[in-house]
């Protein structure tokens, strides 16, 4: 904060941000109203463009597919039905995929945090001189990598092919999250606490466990979520390293269900009643399976959303 700013109390609302603020409206230049209206319109259009496709999938999953494909479904379900969801929940593959993904994501995220947080703490200690070299060693891997084939051969040698550990071990550390956590420790934990802890005879371990971790719930939540979402949405690993259906995660199961229903759809040009019904059911399953696989993330998301700005901003400070 500059001294000029201290001299007078800061206005409550951001004066650069005006459209719906009566107090600042009087100070407007002529023409600002037009600009405001254009900005408001643009924002409305953008928000609709983002939300409507998602809303449509939800509505379509609950509608009669005949109404969906003839374009009669727009804002609310038409011919309400849960047939798609029934079929999805009867499908054993979905449950296997769900179980696998929950297992991989929970174990994976736990390991991620156990690996990332202590390392980030070590790298945040200014008196720890090797931190610069170590940090370079980590960040270099963000920009240079062995590539797909050397990875594949290594995993093969380590026995990770067709193993659940391929989802958990290779991605144990995301350097980006490491940097975010380190920046958080550097900027948000007062150094006085460390001095006090030293005087109380706490070692680095003690300081980290008893003082730093309890103060870091926000960053742990954000980074935990990043990792969890990464595991949940991972399709690549299953595609390349898993050849057994029983070990496939949700995204790969999802894709094979979608693909199966896609081919159904192609053979419906001649349109017999039975074929038409089958296609409608296939579409219904498609919508249902999309919702079912995405729902868990969209449910936890609002609870963690308040931390996002903080998490991303911290990462940006020194990223």
């Amino acid at each position: 904060m500059t001294s000029s700013n201290v001299a007078q109390p800061a206005p409550k609302a951001d004066p650069g941000a005006i459209p719906w603020n009566k107090h600042t409206r009087q100070q407007q230049k002529p023409g600002d109203l037009a600009v405001d209206i254009v900005i408001a319109l643009l924002l409305v259009v953008i928000l609709l463009a983002v939300i409507y496709p998602l809303w449509f999938i939800v509505v379509a999953s609950l509608s009669n597919q005949g109404a969906v494909s003839s374009g009669r479904v727009t804002l609310w379900p038409v011919g309400f039905t849960l047939a798609g969801y029934q079929r999805v929940f009867q499908d054993a593959r979905i449950w296997t995929g769900y179980g696998n993904t929950v297992l991989y994501a929970v174990l994976g995220t736990a390991l991620n945090l156990v690996v990332t947080m202590p390392a980030a703490f070590a790298l945040s200690r200014l008196e720890f001189k090797p931190r610069r070299v170590l940090l370079f060693l980590f960040t270099f891997t963000m920009y240079f990598a062995g590539g797909l084939i050397p990875n594949y051969l290594l995993y093969k040698q380590l026995g990770l092919l067709n193993s659940m550990w391929v989802f958990i071990l290779p991605g144990a550390l995301s350097v980006w999250n490491l940097i975010i956590a380190r920046s958080f420790f550097e900027t948000s934990i007062p150094e006085d606490l460390h001095d006090a802890a030293r005087i109380d005879g706490l070692s680095y371990f003690g300081y980290f466990m008893k003082i730093v971790i309890p103060l870091s719930s926000a960053i742990i939540a954000v980074i935990g979520l990043y990792y969890f979402v990464g595991h949940w949405n991972d399709y690549f690993t299953g595609l390349i390293y898993i050849r057994q259906e029983a070990k496939e995660p949700l995204q790969n199961v999802l894709q094979s269900i979608l693909l199966a229903n896609q081919t159904n759809q192609m053979g419906t040009g001649n349109g017999g009643q039975n074929v038409l019904q089958q296609q409608q059911l296939a579409d219904q399953i498609k919508y249902g399976v999309i919702i079912v696989s995405t729902l868990p993330l969209l449910i936890i998301y609002p609870f963690l959303q308040k931390y996002f700005n903080k998490g991303v901003m911290i990462g940006a400070v020194k990223g």
């Binding site: 202590p118 070590a122 891997t141 590539g147 990875n151 290594l154 144990a172 371990f205």
Partner: peptide
């Protein structure tokens, strides 16, 4: 504290680089 992260990075990032 840095060791696990370091170990995973060496094994899963630098060994493949060596494999280039």
């Amino acid at each position: 504290m840095a060791l696990p992260a370091l170990g995973f990075t060496l094994l899963f990032a630098y060994v493949p680089m060596y494999g280039i």
